[in-house]
Amino acid sequence: MTLLAVESLRVAYGDLTAVHDISFSVEPGEIFVLLGANGAGKTSVLRAISGLLKPTRGTLNSEGVSLLGLRPDQVAHLGIAHVPEGRRIFPNLTAEENLDVSFIRQRSKETLAQLRDRVYGIFPRLASRRRQTANTMSGGEQQMLAIGRALMNTPKLLMLDEPSLGLSPLMTELMFEQLARIRDQGASILLVEQNASCIDMATRGLLLANGHTMLSGDHAKLRDSDFVRRAYLGV
């Protein structure tokens, strides 16, 4: 069953339309990328899916269930986890407490300890920081923590908003490797990026510009397109 189906999505802030008529779907086991420059509407798409803002038009479905009108916490409990842009960790809580927040209202078959261990398995660095206050952690660690927190929701779909932002190229590459591992463990990934190097690991994707779809297709089509080459070069 389609994990996420976005149909004719339109998002507007007052008179300003951020997303015009966008449709795509994410299937189980996929890494789907939404690529585009600043202001292309990528973040608005994610925020509409996770319930942080109301779309003006269109439908959003996950495995046949409509996401429209759900609160963000309800969307999270459906197994759609959103890692917002810019390392939105809880600065005054410890790393472990940051993870635990995602567990509080969850009806999970796994215990808290099992879920933590799985996150620590993917990000061993977090295990050694577990008692440390999150605001004393490095930028890369905070990004891992934000992703780890989303994984505590045992997501079917993990949505990430520019996780590479502010990371070094090496860090970015490592993080993309972690995402591939997370996918291998059973979660699908919807990745929003400006950094076109993520195309390498994507199954399919969409190129956005000014809220419109410029291009959509599989890995090879994205990689070989002029649009992406230009975006990649930053023109």
Partner: peptide, 23 residues
């Protein structure tokens, strides 16, 4: 647990709701 959710709301409301907390 309740206090943890409350502190999460204090620190970052949007991240808390995304983490499944009913803010």
């Amino acid at each position: 647990n309740f206090g943890l959710a409350l502190q999460a709301v204090r620190d970052d409301e949007e991240a808390a709701t995304s983490a499944g907390v009913n803010v």
